[in-house]
Amino acid sequence: MKKYSVRRLTTILVQVIGLFMFSYIGDWISLLLKLPIPGSIVGLLLLFICLYFKIVPEKYIKDGAGFILVILPLFFIPATVGIIQFPNLLSGQGAILIGIVMVSTFMTLIVSGYSSQIVEKKMMERVKQTNE
């Protein structure tokens, strides 16, 4: 565990406020251009572009992003607690939905894994050929 000095906590706080600003700017752009994409994703792309072109130096975001990502699961607990509104999810239809999600997840694993494995094999063969 890293030590949290007052200085470090201030840095984190300021950087988290910066992340909030990116999120709000993203919301605003998404609303303005009537994009179907959530504003926070627009904010993510914006921050990536800013980092890539060195508009925002890495150190201005590092501690805040690191901190917020470590405790990220905390922020979606309110949404998962919302399950309390849907007690019928434990019924027959709920079981079907759970089954659908599981089967779809396995299909995704297989297709994604298999297709990338084929590409990886081709890549390895090419590397071998150039080395020989």
Binding site: V16, L19, F20, F22, S23, Y24, G26, D27, P38, G39, S40, I41, G43, L44, L45, L46, L47, F48, L51, Y52, E58, I61, K62, G64, A65, G66, I68, L69, L72, L74, F75, F76, I77, P78, A79
Partner: peptide, 18 residues
Amino acid sequence: WIELFLGPSVVALAYPLY
């Protein structure tokens, strides 16, 4: 108030990707 942090968390994902 907790959920409010979802937006900046998504934005923060840009950092590991970078």
